[in-house]
């Protein structure tokens, strides 16, 4: 009896499955985000912040996805280093690339939100600082991968960094929150004390962005698998030309 991840590990099966899932995910993302945006703009105005607070509906889901993506990078890294799972590296690479985009979105929206709230585009608020450090962690993963020639080596080294990162992230959070006035988070994952008229648009947007994330992630993994197949075919061609291998079927 194969486990679910073992069955998924076969790239061919993954390609079939993701091909069926992808359009539905993309469709779901479009609908949820469209509905969420309408709800967000018809929701009552925050009496202190006015329209500026609307950016929350992008900012908060992006922050959540930036962390989720890192958790996926770490889990995939673990899968690569411990189980030599054939799709683990494809997943780690895709999650990192999407994660860095959501982290960037989170930083930009946070900074735009900060201007009316704090009067400055950037405040060294612990939540933003932690997000910025996360952004650098992502950049490190991507830079390390791109600067090592041998792809297998790059995958392994990036996985080591990914796991080091997940070990140190809680310490980073702890350290940047250390000296701050502890403010309650705006969306903790127990139900927050936030009025339902504001909560439902946020939940819808989060679900929509989540679906968008899954769609992008599947697409990125498919692209990466195809890229590797092309590369393998080219290598075979070179070897066939050198008389070292039989032509592929």
């Amino acid at each position: 009896m194969q486990t679910f991840t073992q069955r998924l590990a076969n790239p061919t099966r993954f390609m079939e499955l993701s091909a069926r899932l992808l359009p539905w995910m993309a469709f779901l993302a479009c609908v949820l985000i469209a509905v969420g945006l309408v709800m967000a703009f018809t929701a009552p105005l925050d009496y202190q912040q006015g329209h500026a607070a609307k950016i929350m509906y992008v900012h908060v889901p992006a922050a959540w996805l930036s962390m989720l993506a890192y958790a996926m990078v770490a889990a995939s890294s673990f899968g690569l280093l411990v189980f030599r799972h054939p799709l683990a590296d494809v997943s780690a690479k895709s999650a990192a690339l999407i994660g860095v985009v959501f982290t960037f979105v989170c930083l930009v929206t946070g900074s735009l939100w900060g201007k009316p709230m704090w009067g400055a585009f950037w405040s060294w608020d612990p939540r933003l600082t932690a997000e910025l450090v996360l952004f650098f962690l992502y950049l490190g993963l991507i830079a390390l991968r791109s600067s090592v020639e041998d792809e297998a080596l790059a995958a392994n080294l990036t996985a080591v960094l990914g796991i080091v990162g997940i070990v140190i992230l809680p310490v980073i959070h702890y350290s940047v929150y250390w000296n701050s006035i502890h403010q309650p988070p705006s969306l903790s994952f127990g139900w927050p004390k936030i009025h339902p008229s504001l909560l439902w648009p946020l939940v819808t947007m989060t679900a929509g962005m989540q679906a968008l994330f899954v769609a992008l992630y599947l697409k990125a993994m498919r692209n990466e698998i195809l890229r590797r197949r092309v590369k393998a075919l080219r290598l075979t061609e070179v070897q066939v030309a050198a008389g070292l291998a039989e032509p592929a079927e």
């Binding site: 041998d150 792809e151 070897q239």
Partner: peptide, 8 residues
């Protein structure tokens, strides 16, 4: 069996 950079 040895592979280097995808090449056998």
């Amino acid at each position: 069996c040895a592979k280097r950079g995808g090449r056998v």
